[in-house]
Amino acid sequence: MDFSLSHEQEMLVASLRSFVEKELQPHEFAVDRADHVPHELAQSIRQKAIELGFYAFNMPESAGGAGLDYVTQALVERELGRTSWALQVFVARPSKILMACKGEQIERYLLPTVRGERIDCFALTEPGAGSDAMGIRTRAVRDGSDYVINGSKHFISHAENADYVILFAVTGEEEVRGRLRKQVTSFLIDKGTPGMTIHRGPHCTSLRGYHQAEIFFTDCRVSAAQILGEEHRGFDLANEWLTAGRVMVAANNVGRAQRAFEMAAEWAATRQQFGKRIGEFQGTSFKLADMATGIRASELLMLYTADKLDKGTMTDGDAALAKLFASETLGRVTDDAVQIYGGMGLMNELPIERFWRDARIERIWEGTSEIQRHILSKEILRQYS
């Protein structure tokens, strides 16, 4: 299988890497220290990304996006992964499920979001429903032509910057093979809607400057016209987006691992102890070899899975495998990078300790490593049952 890049892909990768190095990486230290991205900086990144054609690269041309195939999207994510989420998030990737918008929703939500005029956030996780998404309790009860929503969400990324929320709420129950199962509907809810409040969540060790929020609904009334997609079919939308998203998480992890590896390799090649470069000691050189092996394997697996996504043959297990391997590789690479740097690896004067902190969340969000193993093992066993 040939994964050599086309001329267009090479140009895109080079352009994006230059953008990341010049416009994003110089702000990493200040943003991490302040745990905040200044509004002016966020606006500048967004505007430059729009001008360069990077903004909403994951959306189809029919909606005004770049219309990139999944392999090329993964390459873009790999390059964005070379900087912190607090900054790269402003090169927005709108939730692909917005393609389910219809009628007035297209002009009100989809197109302005692709143009960078509005920002969305994806609200599924709840205090009692993390890995078990079917455990959500937020309910939307029909009342005439409206729905009345009560409940709460947490760990909702970027919600404080969003103009509207893509909310998932229970709207009914159905019997499936003799058991009751929740029916979930997706709603588009504008910030400022009475009954909905958004607060910043607890401070997180990882991804400083990229905040998560808690959203509370108290008799929040929305029109049935705010349903995204079909009533009771919200999980169909969510699963399609989340599964493909795991491949892009893998790509992002590859980019971050590569940057940490490059810094560790340079340090090993120049730092001297006992009259020798530390890279000449087997304890260090073998770490570098293992890091390079893991990164290469993660990248090939990510490209292979993205190619299957383009061909329509990717399974949930394929996506789980890519996300699992890349996120755990990133954890090992950043941990080894700290070890190679020694004491300096834990000092905040250098970015290595930040890479190490930020890497930890990758094995949790977008589906924990345990969930990925569960998905993959079920798919394996299904072949024999």
Rank of each mutant, 00 (worst) to 15 (best):
K48L: 11
K48W: 04
K48Y: 03
K48G: 00
A49Y: 03
A49H: 02
I50L: 13
E51K: 15
E51L: 08
E51M: 06
E51R: 14
L52E: 12
L52V: 00
L52F: 14
G53W: 09
G53Y: 05
G53I: 03
G53S: 05
F54H: 07
F54S: 08
F54Y: 15
F54W: 09
F54I: 04
Y55C: 06
Y55W: 14
Y55A: 07
Y55D: 02
Y55M: 11
A56L: 01
A56T: 13
A56E: 12
A56N: 10
F57I: 00
F57W: 09
F57K: 01
F57L: 00
N58F: 08
N58H: 04
N58C: 10
N58G: 10
N58V: 02
N58L: 04
M59N: 09
P60N: 06
P60W: 13
E61P: 04
E61T: 14
S62K: 12
S62Y: 12
S62I: 14
S62R: 13
S62N: 08
A63G: 04
A63V: 01
G64S: 10
G64I: 02
G64H: 13
G65A: 01
G65W: 02
G65F: 00
G65D: 07
A66L: 03
G67R: 14
G67E: 10
G67I: 03
G67A: 13
L68I: 04
L68D: 04
L68W: 02
L68R: 00
L68N: 04
D69V: 11
D69K: 12
D69M: 09
Y70C: 06
Y70W: 12
Y70L: 06
Y70I: 07
V71H: 04
V71A: 08
V71D: 03
V71S: 02
V71N: 01
T72F: 00
T72P: 00
Q73F: 05
Q73M: 15
A74P: 04
A74F: 01
A74C: 12
L75N: 03
L75D: 01
L75M: 11
L75I: 13
L75A: 05
V76H: 12
V76E: 05
V76A: 08
V76Q: 06
V76Y: 12
E77G: 11
E77A: 12
E77W: 06
E77F: 13
R78C: 08
L80T: 08
G81Q: 08
R82E: 06
R82V: 00
R82T: 09
T83K: 03
T83S: 15
T83C: 15
T83P: 10
S84P: 00
S84W: 04
W85E: 15
W85K: 15
W85G: 11
A86L: 01
A86H: 08
A86C: 04
A86I: 02
L87H: 13
Q88A: 08
Q88S: 15
V89W: 10
V89Y: 13
V89K: 13
V89F: 12
